[in-house]
Write a protein that binds this DNA or RNA. Sequence first.
DNA 1: CACTATTTGTTCGTATGTATT
DNA 2: CAATACATACGAACAAATAGT
Lengths: 241, 241
Amino acid sequence: MTRKSGVALWRQIADQIRQAISAGTLGADGKLPPEMILSERFGVNRHTLRSAIAALVQEGVLRAEQGRGTFVESRQKLSYPISARTRFSTGLREQTRERRSILLADAIEPALGRVAEALGLAPDAPVLRLETLSEADGRPVSRATSWFDAERFPDFARVYAETASITLAFQHFGIEDYFRKSTLVSARHADAADLTDLKLSAGAIVLVAWAINVDTAGVSVQYAETRFVADRVELSVSTEA
Amino acid sequence: MTRKSGVALWRQIADQIRQAISAGTLGADGKLPPEMILSERFGVNRHTLRSAIAALVQEGVLRAEQGRGTFVESRQKLSYPISARTRFSTGLREQTRERRSILLADAIEPALGRVAEALGLAPDAPVLRLETLSEADGRPVSRATSWFDAERFPDFARVYAETASITLAFQHFGIEDYFRKSTLVSARHADAADLTDLKLSAGAIVLVAWAINVDTAGVSVQYAETRFVADRVELSVSTEA
DNA sequence: CACTATTTGTTCGTATGTATT
DNA sequence: CAATACATACGAACAAATAGT
């Protein structure tokens, strides 16, 4: 195994270990083989392997105990419901002890092509962009970019910052209810920004959901791109007739 | 911008360019600014920027022409609908010229925990497992593993092989209609088997959908795990009220 | 047609970071 | 800790293709 393709060797090893664990070919009994064995198996120096393990410990995948060994932290995925009544806060309530959303940034900007189309606005109409981060049990779960009609929802960012809830902020503007109209789901490697915000290591995967929410009249009120940490989240679509 | 966090600079730049393109803030007109301009904007040497571009060309995101410029290759994804009426054959009809499914293997086996639960069968009840591959325009799109009640659908594999359609095979057993009950979506790195079947290169991502289909009486008739090539497919969930 | 400006493609050299021995 | 090999990054210059004057 040599270094190549722009990714440090210890990160490649970390990716391989992470994958082997999820595939069940490594640590199926909850315990990893000793570092010496692993370094031989991956064909790298023990120092390199230790760097990989350290990263996975930091990531929460592994737990190392001196004199005992390295253990797999079992983390079952958060199941995130997608339905007409999808609320970003509900549905996860029983799955986590503590959840919170953080407003990272907000800005008014002209609506780019896709955003204008999704919100049903004229191109370059002013829209509010919110950058938010969601955590569960102290770990980052998702990172969202949302757009709103800046003229219909003036000062939305301040209201959201006070209420810490999209639902409550909408109510402040007279929208008592809203619905998920459509969701487009794809997956890709986390980019540099995702890596830092979601505290991931290179090669990690994000589930990307492009969502359009509409009010009771069917008018688009929110367009959002949410990047979920694929290791921690699955999306659940129920399509009962 | 310095090198750090174990990821090569040219790779970070490539990620930024890829995201900027998908966000519409770069190459919205189909053409990228000249290398000199881009290298200044990203604060890196022209070589570094060229490495990033070379990677994206290899990836199929960009196309470079000497003397003319660097252009965005628009590769729109296949949009795969998920609804109560989801059929694996329909919905994609207008998006591809040619589609086909191939039966790779079939076997009768005892139902493992999750399979038995999803199909509403007793543990270790005999189930039929089908391994199928779907191609669009000559390129692999998805790889599915499906399970069926072997007692209710004897000889299902042969019927499917003849009709090349799940819908038609079900009709042969008197099921005139069926519905998608639930879909669980996650994403992971392609494993060794996926890499060969879907002709992917290491590090590629698959969108994984676990689906339960039920007949008109609400009885589970099919349980399937489908691995979609994330580069080529997105899942579209419409949740109209 | 020649000339020029623009843009990508190639080849030197040098320095630094990373992994192994 | 030192020596070595390799990947990464920057700088400068030139070559080749294209588009316009």
